[in-house]
Design a protein around this nucleic acid. Structure first.
Lengths: 222, 222
DNA sequence: CTATTATTCAAGTGATATATTGAATACTAG
DNA sequence: CTAGTATTCAATATATCACTTGAATAATAG
């Protein structure tokens, strides 16, 4: 009597787990954590066929992780809610803490990870308000436009070296990107430090910032 | 250059997701969230063969979710850390919020779920210290022995009806069990209310209580 | 209505996961 | 060393999953 519905609950949870069991689907989720996107966009960004992308998105939707919105010809998908971001963060934390691979990979590509101590979100918000730090968003412009930390400057990581002069040198730079397992902010901090700037990473990325209820600026569409 | 390690990180996260993609493995995790257990115990509790149980446990271990400890003939498995409890909670929250099934099942068996408002952990601790409430642990005795809320009384839910007199009637009873998707505490509250007691559920269960850093009593072994 | 485009559906194939079975390994007791 | 037990390993049939292909839907423009 009491064990039957329990099994059903486990089955439901397992459906969520199954949705998270494919690297491509996790990549879709990370992209959708930035802003809503159409099927075609997601297919292009990940290099998979449209039909395949559509099928993956439907599995994610059946698991309750994303929702779709039809607008004209396009279907725009987005995360179902902040709980999904929390779930991804929890997975990343388990992965970092216990799966040797993740740490090994991060160390391999960013040997000085230990020196790149992240800054907690609340601290950044306070110090940004007092103009004590420069907040740097290293994501692509379209993601910046869909929402960013108030007062942040947007310089995609590829352009950082040639546009580095736009950042005041006397203030410390706090860089952020997509999330705890997005590596662009590591790269940015590395480059900034090489050129003599003081720089650190924001703990986590914009999705977590948003999920924590901190203010986000969204640019008005023209 | 920057997209290659990213794919690897997604693959690592997907391995965690794959580990969470089977109902039986989630059941094992929920049992292990209570206390460490041997392979044989887990097999008995879930009704699967020992060989099958062993294989599932190894997949969980490879994903970094559990760790094993050999003691004589037995191998005792336990969760790798509190992060795993957080991950399970995050999954349950997504499931409850967005997967219609979970909510439907809970409603089906506990129609008055809305009236069973849970009590936050901090509130319970305070009021238990002042003896304003009775804390009731409805899990089996062996799980109670492995760790419980300070001052809690242990009456497994099956025995609740015949032992209900052990609970003082003038104080409100706060019941808890294994976690947010464990249904025993719902059942307990239902029975208590029918008999005229005031009763509510503790928000979440013991694993979350422990993960939140709140005090836990472990009985000394003889 | 027709043509066009984004998305979804359906069928097929190769790969992967699951549960079962029987044997191998590791440890303890005597 | 031998017997007995807990766990793991290996081999197998069945089921499920991932990706491709080609066609079907649905919305828009002309």
């Amino acid at each position: 009597m009491s064990t039957n519905p329990k099994r059903d609950v486990f089955a439901s949870l397992a459906r969520v787990g199954t949705a998270l069991s494919s690297p491509i689907r996790i990549e879709f989720l990370e992209l959708l954590a930035q802003s809503e996107r159409s099927v075609e966009q997601l297919a292009g960004l990940t290099g998979t066929t449209v039909a395949n992308t559509s099928q993956h998105l439907q599995r994610l939707r059946q698991a309750g992780l994303i929702v779709g919105r039809k607008e004209g010809l396009y279907v725009f998908y987005r995360l179902a809610g902040d709980e999904v971001v929390a779930l991804l963060s929890a997975m990343a934390r388990v992965g970092e803490a216990y799966v040797a691979d993740v740490e090994r990979i991060v160390r391999l590509y960013f040997a000085q990870k230990d020196e790149l101590e992240p800054v907690p979100a609340k601290e950044v918000l306070e110090r940004a308000r007092k103009s004590l730090v420069t907040v740097l968003d290293v994501r692509p412009p379209e993601e910046f436009a869909a929402g960013h930390v108030p007062g942040a400057i947007n310089i995609p990581v590829q352009e950082l070296e040639k546009r580095i002069k736009e950042l005041p040198k006397r203030r410390e730079v706090i860089a952020y990107c997509r999330g705890p397992y997005c590596l662009m902010s590591f790269e940015a901090v590395e480059k900034l430090r090489k050129k003599g700037w003081r720089a650190r990473r924001l703990e986590n990325g914009l999705p977590e910032w948003r999920a924590a209820g901190l203010p986000v600026v969204e640019e008005a569409e023209s």
